[in-house]
Amino acid sequence: MRADARKNRDRLLTVAGAVITEQGAEASLRDIARKADMGLATLLRHFPTREALLDALLRTNFDDLTARAGELEESSSPTDALVAWLRDCVACAHAYRGVTSLMSAALEDPASALHASCVAMRTAGTGLLARAQAAGEARTDVDGTDLFALVAALAWLGDQPVFEARADHLLDVVASAILTSGARRGEGRRRGGVSSTAAR
């Protein structure tokens, strides 16, 4: 890629990140191009679809989550690793308002530019969940697709002003529901009892 083309691409990604954070995943591509001082045709040369633009924005975060799962598996107990990754994953999905519906659709659409990244993220979470299940610390009737769905649901709740203040508490509730009773007791001891968010 020529230096000027790369500069344009980087500029588009910077502006798109700001616009989508403010307006959501359905923000106007024409508006993004205008704010980047470029034409829509230039944007579409770099990112032919909305999904391609979102994939470029999210791929680094998704790759980081995949790597993070490996680090947590080596450094933390199965329960701590699963809960920490769940929190990181929800935060990533929440970073761009409205992206969760596109992520969910991309899982079932191999033609989507987001498909590979979403599958990789689901696979990373599935590995941590399976490790916790093998240790008897997570319920066995939950699978990786369920975990991905819960991440999407929690990110969506964080997008809703009426629920935003409860987002951390609801994540605690969901994490507790995934864990077995013994793991929940251990998590409570590691936190020093009831979490501050749950006590609200």
Rank of each mutant, 00 (worst) to 15 (best):
S117R: 04
A155M: 05
D4E: 12
S28W: 05
T49W: 01
R59V: 09
E187C: 07
V15G: 06
D55I: 02
G125K: 05
T100Q: 15
T14C: 07
A149W: 15
E73P: 08
Y96R: 08
L102V: 09
L171I: 09
L82Y: 00
M103E: 10
D37Q: 11
A111Q: 10
A36I: 06
R2K: 14
R68K: 11
A5L: 13
E164R: 15
L128A: 00
A135S: 07
A67I: 06
D88R: 02
L114E: 01
I178D: 06
V174N: 05
S112V: 05
V194K: 07
R30S: 15
M103S: 11
A93S: 14
T79E: 14
E73Y: 12
C118D: 06
D4Q: 10
L12Q: 02
R11C: 11
D31I: 12
A67S: 12
E26N: 14
L58S: 10
V99T: 13
T197F: 10
L102W: 10
D146R: 10
E22G: 11
G193T: 03
A116D: 15
E137P: 08
Q160E: 15
E187N: 11
A52E: 12
L128W: 00
R45S: 07
C92G: 07
V83M: 01
R189C: 07
H46A: 00
L57A: 03
A105N: 09
V174Q: 08
E187F: 08
R191I: 02
S101W: 12
M121L: 15
S104G: 09
L147F: 10
I32R: 11
L54C: 02
P161A: 10
Q23Y: 12
